[in-house]
Nucleic acid binder design. Structure first.
Lengths: 239, 239
DNA sequence: CGACTTCTTGAAGAAGGTCAACATTTGTGG
DNA sequence: CCACAAATGTTGACCTTCTTCAAGAAGTCG
């Protein structure tokens, strides 16, 4: 579609949506321009700093959100403080749990992030009125389910080395600057968060990272910035 | 609802559905009697022996199923043979992955089971024509997602003892004969399957089971039949 | 009853966790 | 802009948990 035509088609939609990363995402891509206008009227854009909580585990949230930029982590916490990251979400994903008031997990900005927040009541009504939207959310739920199950395999059956390699591979394939064979990216997670994702300790993560570095599988600059010269080789270690 | 009235309301539906456990389940509970008749016309009831595969990982299945009785396990297998069970499903759950042809996991009867099989094409059409059905399947997907994430916490952060206790607790709360405080049930899984579910080895599972037995948390008869005198105590060990 | 599978138990070993010290990066106020 | 403090990451030594390997016990099925 050329630019002029795209602008004509987009003429009726809210200004704020024009350059929004989530414009054609799970939620907004399934709405009519009338619905988009209505949702926008009740939406709020928020900048979140890394570490900021979007939804608290056990709380009743009356809001949903779209991720416009950044990475959001979904966490589960045990009473004694043990913690497990159970999902990572990227723009333009939808954040929230339709049909259930109380959240069984917390959502937290892993990096600085921008989200678009809108009220539960309004959106629940839109879901029930818009089969296309229902279908789109259903689709995201199924994708998250696939991802969760893939991760269960990693948690249950892979070694520490394979776990770390799997995470790096996951992030590399979601981050942008990627050539055919190599990749370079900033980790959106600290070592502690990586440990919580992989069911390991900080120390084990650190040791496995330096092992991968010493074997030439990855280059580490500044501990957050990673270069993978050969993605195929990294994938092989994933098992 | 009394029996006479229920029989009148059910008059228009297929005979096979009358006493079906899945009649008011995720799928059939969301269908009109006309749709139920149509689906029934193209359905096939199958008895599956324990161990029998319903869908193979990596295959393209042109069928979906409803579980009428028994327990179905969802498995992921690595090329080197390592295996992880990523979900258990009970009657009247729906089995299959809408919108995607190729299955990323296998589904296998864990116990003897009866399933009701119906063609993909027909059912995909029904989904798109029936918002209520879409919603119902969406709901099941979200419940499975919650369960998967709960299990990720178990796989990543619980000890072997807590894992075994968690599984026993999960099965006890899904099996029928349960009083206020105690429970008695047959394990639908062998030790090997339990190990594959918990990310452990057979030996560790066995050792933890006898530890729980020696501490009086559970009684083991005939290695498959388990009695839990005090469910609260079992839950406590779950952490 | 005997052959097979499944489950249990023991001894030894390895993977990953814990504790502690140190290095590096980041942030803050002078 | 530097100095210092705090947070984050790395490394080493030791220890615990779980796995591996091996043998034996208990069910299960012909």
């Amino acid at each position: 579609m050329d630019v002029a035509r795209s602008e004509i088609l987009e003429a009726g939609i809210p200004l704020a949506c024009h350059s929004c990363q989530a414009r054609h995402g799970v939620v907004c891509g399934a709405l009519s321009s009338r619905q988009l206008k209505e949702l926008n009227r009740h939406s709020l854009r928020r900048k979140m700093e890394a570490g900021c909580e979007i939804i608290a585990q056990g709380s009743e949230s009356s809001f949903y959100s779209n991720i416009m930029s950044g990475v959001v982590k979904l966490c589960k916490m045990m009473p004694d403080g043990r913690q497990q990251i159970v999902g990572l979400q990227f723009a333009p994903d939808f954040v929230g749990r339709p049909f259930v008031r109380e959240s069984t997990l917390s959502a937290e900005a892993a990096t600085d992030a921008e989200i678009c927040v809108f009220p539960r009541n309004l959106f629940d009504r839109m879901i029930s009125e818009t089969p296309e939207l229902q279908r789109s959310l259903h689709d995201q739920a199924l994708k998250e389910l696939d991802a969760a199950r893939e991760w269960m395999l990693t948690l249950g059956r892979r070694t520490a080395e394979e776990k770390v390699a799997s995470l790096l591979y996951l992030i590399a394939t979601h981050a942008e600057p990627q050539t055919a064979t190599s990749a370079a990216f900033d980790l959106p997670l600290s070592r502690a968060e990586i440990a919580d994702f992989l069911g390991l300790t900080i120390e084990t993560v650190s040791r496995q990272m330096t092992r991968l570095r010493k074997r030439g599988i990855i280059l580490i600059e500044n501990s957050r910035h990673i270069i993978v010269p050969d993605m195929d080789e990294l994938e092989r270690i994933t098992a």
